[in-house]
């Protein structure tokens, strides 16, 4: 594979664990030996810095405005990966201007050769900027909880990505499941609704790739309160082992796609 596999992590609804997954999945992938970069593209309402307890002097904002070279904004995160943080409250980036568009694309071109995996933590919702960030990625992962509003938002995201970007494959992680198998059940149902209601002009079918579920686990909240990564603070927790399993399946999927030569540039 030439350069990093770029994975956008998104969610229709906010507050379903998108940033938690980005940071801890990056840790799990780094443990597997991958060189991982997480880009905080939740430009309007970033909080990866809070999750990682980092206080960067240089952020994406400085890079985008030409005030700092890109390398200065790349920071070592506690989990053995690197991050580029947006800096909080950069409302001017909540809209997709041609400048933001160009800067994001340029950024990914620059970092792609240096890593095995780039995770883009997008904003919640289906704004122009989220759709654009996702369009730059090789693969998209949607995270949802088994709760009606989160599920409907996740469905809307998958549908819009299919209709607008022709994405025929989306990865799914179900967070905060209360019983084993709940995630698989939700994925099956989502897939059924997609099959029934989402039809692409060329007749291509849309597949939902269930990467796994993360059990509802108090250690997730505790790690956030301690401002530590779950994978480091509670490596033995159910949620941490679920995330390791998701990392394993993700790595397998990427390897399989590469082997089949299916990997297409964006």
């Amino acid at each position: 594979m030439s350069g990093a596999h770029i994975l956008a992590i998104t969610s229709g609804k906010g507050g379903v664990g998108k940033t938690m997954l980005s940071a801890n999945l990056a840790t799990a992938l780094a443990r597997r030996g991958e060189r991982v970069l997480v880009i905080d593209a939740d430009l309007g309402l970033a909080n990866l810095d809070v999750v990682l307890n980092l206080h960067p002097r240089t952020t994406l904002h400085d890079v985008f405005t030409g005030q700092a070279p890109l390398d200065q904004a790349v920071i070592d995160a506690p989990g053995g990966f690197q991050v580029m943080l947006a800096g909080s409250g950069l409302i001017e980036y909540s809209r997709l201007t041609p400048q933001v568009r160009e800067q994001l694309a340029l950024l990914l071109d620059t970092v792609r050769p240096r890593y095995d995996r780039v995770l883009i933590d997008t904003g919640a919702g289906i704004s122009d900027i989220v759709l654009y960030a996702v369009s730059l990625a090789d693969e998209v992962l949607v995270i949802a909880t088994p709760e009606p509003t989160a599920l409907a938002d996740a469905y809307a995201t998958i549908k819009v990505l299919a209709m607008q970007q022709g994405r025929t494959s989306t990865m799914l992680v179900v967070n905060q499941t209360q019983r084993p198998g709940e995630g698989r059940h939700v994925a099956t149902q989502l897939q059924a609704v997609i099959q029934r209601f989402v039809h692409l002009a060329d007749g291509a079918s849309i597949t939902l790739q269930a990467l796994g579920e993360i059990a509802l686990d108090t250690s997730v909240r505790q790690s956030v309160q301690k401002r530590q990564l779950l994978m480091l603070a509670y490596p033995g927790s159910d949620a941490a082992s679920d995330i390791r399993e998701i990392a394993r399946r993700l790595a397998e999927a990427t390897a399989a796609a590469a082997a089949a030569g299916l990997q297409s540039p964006p």
Binding site: P146, A192, V193, F197
Partner: peptide
């Protein structure tokens, strides 16, 4: 609504 109902039945069914 139809899509929503079908989706939500996933949650209630569990």
């Amino acid at each position: 609504n139809e899509e929503r109902e079908m989706l939500f039945s996933a949650v209630s069914a569990f």
